[in-house]
Design a protein around this nucleic acid. Structure first.
Lengths: 235, 235
DNA sequence: CGAGTTATGTACGCTAGCGTGCCGACGCTT
DNA sequence: AAGCGTCGGCACGCTAGCGTACATAACTCG
């Protein structure tokens, strides 16, 4: 296990807890390595653990009969298994590891017990839950109204925030699944962003060149999401 | 104020509470009359009250810069002001009264105090919150993938469940705003549903003729929503 | 009754994105 | 070095839905 100090700092939801609560919490967690493509939850299945990503990140995907759509993403700023905060041990969404790395993992029963003994953590996670709900609601509108190009820019920014590098391992195929569009649609949008000098890409690798430009190319939803998170969860 | 018995029975979230908790809760509420078009919350504004609709129902609408989209609906099966359950006194969405009628209203401070003293209610509302989150996530996908006609059918069913009558007061204009599409788009979808003998309509009034047929015409999202609600909140 | 307002029908050209399929290029494996 | 699987560019015709605009038709109010 990594040092407590390091691990504590590594997840934003845990970082600013009172030392005693934080250490108690982290002592109950184990550090796990998540690998690309790993499925942490299947919808309607039982949630046995909550995850607090350190340097990994995870897409949460709604599944209709035959279509899939990413509706939320969790990295070191968030957590997985929020339904446990509501006392529900069922996963609503498919959780797919999109960025490899480590995460703190805690079993459901311990997690729920610790929530009761740590009001500060509990409150903080409820606020996070509020943020996520908001993002879900706004995402619905964003996905409906905004163009692929804007949505792609937003998505790259969200991923960039959670990965530590400018180089993202992503195929057009994968992006198409995330955004719920055709692969060819992604190709066109990617060409547009590359032509504008905002990204560069090549065979399963996308490099963020001009982050500020990407923000301008994305819909306001990106900035709104960030603003809400800061408002609710940054001290 | 209506009789406690009547009022208790009238909102599904409160109906099955232990008698003592229920009566304590309802005694703290006032019954208010909501009128069509009334705005209960503006996004980012402070939430001063929670509402438990009795025979009214309310649309919750996400607002982007220049577009609006209904993302959730609350009637006697639900509540408004769920963010208070999370200890957040801010409204994320525009809450617009869409069906006139009564609701129980409770002030935010009292509500939060009573939550602490009524674990059963608290748990029940957390489960409701889980259901709403799920609906938000699925709605995002539904809105993205499904046709106007299917979505319209679904929306009419949801409204029909919350209104008590087969006759709904709705203009195409209003429906267009709810679904985030053109008025003309609604007209076409409505014509299709009418031609199939599922609804009949005329100048601001839509009559549900064949509920079962509407269910078949709607996307599965309607049935899924209902199933989840039952699973989580019907004893 | 007549004027104004509101709700619905319809039509026009337009655009984003779809489904599909094909090709070439890259890079890994052997 | 050859072969194969993966990735991305591109092109085809097609559809849903857009923005707009205009015409009825139905109610409302004076």
């Amino acid at each position: 296990m990594t040092s407590i100090f390091h691990a504590a700092d590594a997840n934003q939801l845990l970082a600013d807890l009172p030392v005693a609560e934080r250490d108690a919490f982290i002592a109950t967690c184990e550090t796990v390595q998540l690998t690309f493509g790993e499925v942490l939850y299947q919808p309607t299945q039982q949630v046995t653990h909550a995850y607090f990503p350190i340097d990994s990140f995870i897409s949460q995907i709604a599944i209709l009969v035959d279509s899939r759509l990413e509706v939320a993403m969790a990295g070191r700023e968030g957590m997985l298994g929020i339904s446990l905060v509501l006392g529900v041990e069922e996963a609503p969404l498919l959780a797919l590891v999109q960025g490899e790395g480590q995460a703190l993992r805690i079993n459901a029963a311990n997690f729920q017990r610790l929530l009761l003994s740590s009001p500060v953590l509990h409150q903080r996670l409820k606020r996070y839950l509020y943020v996520v709900m908001n993002q879900l609601a706004n995402s619905a509108a964003c996905i409906h109204f905004h163009r692929i190009e804007e949505r792609l820019a937003r998505w790259l920014l969200m991923t960039h925030d959670r990965a530590k590098t400018n180089t993202l391992q992503l195929t057009h195929e994968f992006l198409a699944m995330m955004l719920g569009v055709r692969r060819a649609g992604i190709t066109l949008a990617a060409i547009a962003l590359q032509t504008r000098g905002l990204i560069r890409y090549h065979r399963g690798e996308i490099i963020i060149i001009d982050r500020q430009g990407l923000i301008e190319a994305s819909c306001k939803c990106y900035a709104d999401d960030c603003a809400l998170y800061s408002k609710m969860l940054i001290l």
